[in-house]
Simulated scan of single mutants.
Amino acid sequence: MGAMTALTDRCFSGVIFDMDGTLIDSTPAVVRSWTRWAEEYEIPEEKFGDFHGMPARSIVAKLMPPELHEESLARVTQLELDDVEGIVALPGAVEALATLPVTAIATSCTRDLAERRIAASGIPAPDVVVTASDVTHGKPDPEPFLLAAERLGIDPRRALVVEDATSGIRAGQAAGASTLAVVTTTQRDALAFADLVVDDLSAVSWHVSDEGVSLSLR
């Protein structure tokens, strides 16, 4: 209760959302693309750990020998670009983006892939979209959220980061932001270290005032 009270009592200068699993449901397309990639490169399923929320480049680096990094990264990137079937907005996502005046997306997708998935889902894209193409280090490094806060013109310590992956929550915390976790793709227990955990964005009401943005539970 303490963490919930602390978060719902706070006022934020802006909200930075992860995209896949937070604002949009791309899981079927992601699974199809990576499964096909793993089959083509004969990577056994047990080699895949908790890579959700990490950039494709980081995943490939953990699974493939150095001499195949660029080739295999290009292949999985193309597979993901070619498959946007069934990508939809998650509950509460469109309302949040339409309601909040200062928002950004910080995603582990590349720029091209982020644009394709945003278009496929129909969510309104905020002015600031930070992708893996914009940063040197991806989540769980804080760089994506620090850059998003910088481009929004806000102090990251007065930002709220909304995520569905443990790597994203860690990145948000490392950036100094408060964190709201949604359990759309990850078990609730694994996200318990976030400031607040909810089922999805439809569980949250947003309140905008001259002081900034606050939230409450529905």
Rank of each mutant, 00 (worst) to 15 (best):
V162P: 05
S167V: 15
S216T: 15
L23C: 06
R36S: 14
D189V: 07
A104R: 06
E163T: 01
V88N: 02
H69T: 01
V76F: 08
H69M: 09
K47C: 13
A132D: 15
C109T: 13
E80L: 09
R170Y: 00
G86T: 02
E211D: 15
P55Y: 12
T166N: 00
D20L: 09
V128Y: 05
A165M: 03
F17D: 00
T136I: 11
M1G: 14
E67A: 03
I123V: 12
P55H: 12
D210Q: 13
R116W: 00
R36F: 05
G138Q: 11
S167M: 01
E143A: 11
S26P: 03
L23N: 01
R157K: 14
V183T: 15
D112V: 01
T99H: 02
D189S: 14
D25I: 06
D18R: 05
L100Y: 02
G168A: 05
I123N: 00
M4A: 14
D195P: 01
V208M: 06
D83P: 06
V213T: 14
W37S: 10
P142K: 12
T22A: 07
A148W: 09
P144T: 14
E70H: 11
A171G: 15
A96N: 05
T186D: 05
A175D: 09
P66S: 01
A93D: 08
D50N: 14
V60I: 14
T110L: 07
L191Q: 08
L73H: 11
W206H: 05
S13T: 11
A56L: 12
T131C: 15
L81H: 09
V182H: 07
S72V: 04
T184S: 14
R218M: 07
T186Q: 07
V102N: 13
D127Y: 00
P140V: 13
E70M: 07
T5Q: 13
E115V: 04
R10H: 13
D83Y: 06
V15Y: 01
A93I: 10
V135G: 10
T27D: 09
T185C: 08
R188K: 14
A96Q: 09
L23G: 04
Y41G: 02
S33G: 15
K47F: 12
